[in-house]
Design a protein around this nucleic acid. Structure first.
Length: 579
DNA sequence: GCCGTTTTCGGCCCGACTGTTTTCAGTCG
């Protein structure tokens, strides 16, 4: 029988929600399925375990009805309810609702009035100008549909970008707008501010008394390729690389509520607004307004708004509606680890394997960035494509590292390490005698990631239980947008890692961000300890630490949960004490 | 369909912009 993953269930629930919406079902039921899908996406544990234990209802937004459906789907790989639904509402309509501007009402209209159920039919009808004849449609909407269908061919639709690309794009635009005197305050919002692993568009918020000036400046930037929509307070453009950037301008007095609103996530905002209603207020991006009568309240700072509603300020990284609002109510949000807490970096590559820079260049940059230590972890020879180095070559590198360290004073040192390859049988491709010469051993699993679940779980277990291994690198192996997480029984691996004091890496490379937040939260429950590393392959990559710190924040980690917030001496003594 | 430290029944976020309209529905975030 095929294994049903959390992702499969999430997709199924989302599809049900969309089909119900097209069918014209009440929006509350539609939302219930959407919320349940979102809840699954945030869940750290494996649904199969929850089903087995009968604990599905512990997840927010999952009650009896949806819980039963998940159970049936996970156990049998099928869901009768869904098959019946598809008989009523053709499943292919889902592809239509992916198109921009095509919401449930319009999909329903082309389906019922024109008998269209798929992309091809829609394209034909639009080309024949039959779509614009429908009530509520017109030539412009028809044109938009054709345009979207053309782009779809190039698979531009639903494109997401790495956090790195989006973050740097946001910084560039902010730096540019900041120079203008009409801009009083400016900040990134949305998923960039939340440090989400993938970003659909860049959101920027500005406080200004002259919104038109800011809009004009924004649309006339040389980066702006096309203006998608332009209003008095909200403008969207496409920039050179195809990325969409939304700009919102508010009065300075609204900054706190506006930044809260514009940071999201949408689900977090819904929670906040529901909570406000319970306290007798309606919350918008402009103000907190008493439902009955009284003066609107304005907040210049986000933290003032949260406090007024009886909550701790919630760091943006946590605002995904997985339970953070309830935590804030109970004052249980800890002080998250910050970039300035990080004292060293425990994974980096040089030109001895697949890195671009020399050991000395890497050391100098790490030192200039304020780090106290940098672990050199070139690939071992097992990873052929990365020009891995052999045992004897490694001993030469150790000598070179000692020579370089003598050029620095006591405030910085390179540490001797390796990213040793874990072979498909779970053994390492360097022998014990070589590994024992090193300060710290990082183990990486780069090949045979599609092994059957039981087999690859055993391989992970062998790795974290190996007394020679100190750090498990980029555990899930995901490459954002191109490779899914490896299917592993994480609970077993996290338990073994905690027992064996093996450190779990949070890899800061924007293509990895691995472990992801929800699995960090899970691992933390098992008592695991973490390290935040850049995995830099060049001096520039050493700047990626901020993304790893953001990801750690999404996993609720404090300074104490992260070993490389300690001095090099403390790190080495922890390593020495490993059983 | 879910949820509850004011509710086990009666609620369920809020506003901007576009394109279709003669005052608003649909979509989006």
């Amino acid at each position: 029988m095929t294994q049903i993953s959390n992702r499969d269930v999430e997709r199924l629930l989302k599809n049900i929600s969309t089909l119900l919406e097209i069918k014209g079902e009440t929006r509350f039921r539609v939302n219930a399925y959407r919320n349940a899908a979102e809840s699954i996406a945030q869940a750290g544990g494996d649904l199969k375990d929850l089903v087995e234990k009968g604990d599905l209802n512990d997840l927010p937004g999952i009650g009896k009805a949806i819980g039963d459906k998940i159970t049936e789907y996970v156990n049998t790989g099928k869901l009768d309810y869904y098959d019946k639904l598809c008989e009523e509402v053709p499943e292919d309509l889902l592809t239509l609702s992916d198109l921009p501007g095509m919401g449930p009402k319009r999909v329903k209209a082309v389906w019922e009035k024109l008998g269209i159920t798929d992309i091809r039919g829609l394209k034909k009808a639009a080309q024949d100008q039959r779509v614009q004849e429908l009530e509520g449609f017109g030539p412009k909407i028809e044109e938009k549909i054709l345009e979207a269908l053309d782009q779809k061919k190039k698979s531009v639709s639903d494109q997401r970008y790495s956090l790195g690309d989006a973050w740097f794009q946001a910084q560039r635009i902010i730096a540019k707008l900041k120079k203008d005197p009409s801009v009083i305050k400016i900040s990134a919002g949305g998923s960039v501010r939340r440090m989400k692993a993938s970003v659909g568009d860049v959101d920027i918020l500005v406080a200004s008394d002259r919104p038109e000036d800011v809009m004009d400046l924004f649309t006339s930037m040389k980066e702006t390729e096309k203006v998608l929509l332009k209003g008095s307070t909200k403008t969207s453009v496409k920039v050179e690389n195809g990325m969409q950037v939304d700009l919102r301008v508010v009065e300075p007095a609204c900054w706190g509520t506006a930044l809260q609103y514009f940071t999201g996530s949408q689900e977090h905002n819904v929670k906040m607004r529901e909570l406000s209603l319970k306290k007798g207020f309606s919350l918008s991006e402009y103000a907190l307004s008493p439902v009955k009568e009284g003066q609107d309240m304005f907040f210049e700072k986000e933290s003032d708004l949260y406090r007024y509603l009886g909550l701790q300020w919630i760091p943006p990284e946590l605002r995904e509606s997985w339970g953070e609002v309830e935590m804030a109510k109970q004052n249980r949000i800890p002080q998250l680890v910050s970039l300035s807490d990080i004292k060293g970096d425990l994974q980096s590559h040089s030109d001895w394997s697949d890195g671009r820079n020399t050991l000395y260049e890497m050391a100098r940059t790490a030192y200039a960035n304020g780090l106290e230590y940098l672990l050199v972890t070139d690939h071992s020879s097992g990873l052929g494509i990365a020009h891995g180095i052999s045992g004897s070559k490694l001993m030469e590198q150790v000598e070179e590292i000692e020579r370089i360290n003598s050029e620095f004073n006591d405030s910085f040192r390179l540490l001797k390490g390796i990213e040793v390859e874990v072979k498909s049988d779970g053994t390492l491709d360097l022998n014990e005698n070589v590994l024992k010469e090193l300060d710290i051993v990082v183990a990486g699993i780069h090949s045979s990631l599609r092994q059957e679940r039981k087999r690859i779980t055993d391989r992970y277990l062998a790795t974290v239980q190996n007394p020679l291994v100190h750090i498990l690198a980029h555990p899930t192996g995901r490459l954002i947008g191109s490779r899914e997480e490896t299917d592993v029984d994480w609970d077993q691996v996290f338990r073994a890692a905690a027992e064996n004091r093996t450190l779990l890496e949070i890899n800061s490379n924007p293509m990895r961000l691995d472990l992801p937040g929800r699995l960090i939260r899970r691992a933390r429950e098992f008592g695991c300890l973490f390290v935040i590393n850049t995995d830099a392959h060049s001096t520039e990559d050493l700047n990626h630490l901020i993304f790893g710190v953001g990801t750690a924040g999404r996993g609720l980690l404090t300074k104490e949960d992260v070993l490389n917030t300690s001095s090099g001496g403390n790190v080495l003594s922890y390593i020495k004490d490993k059983p």
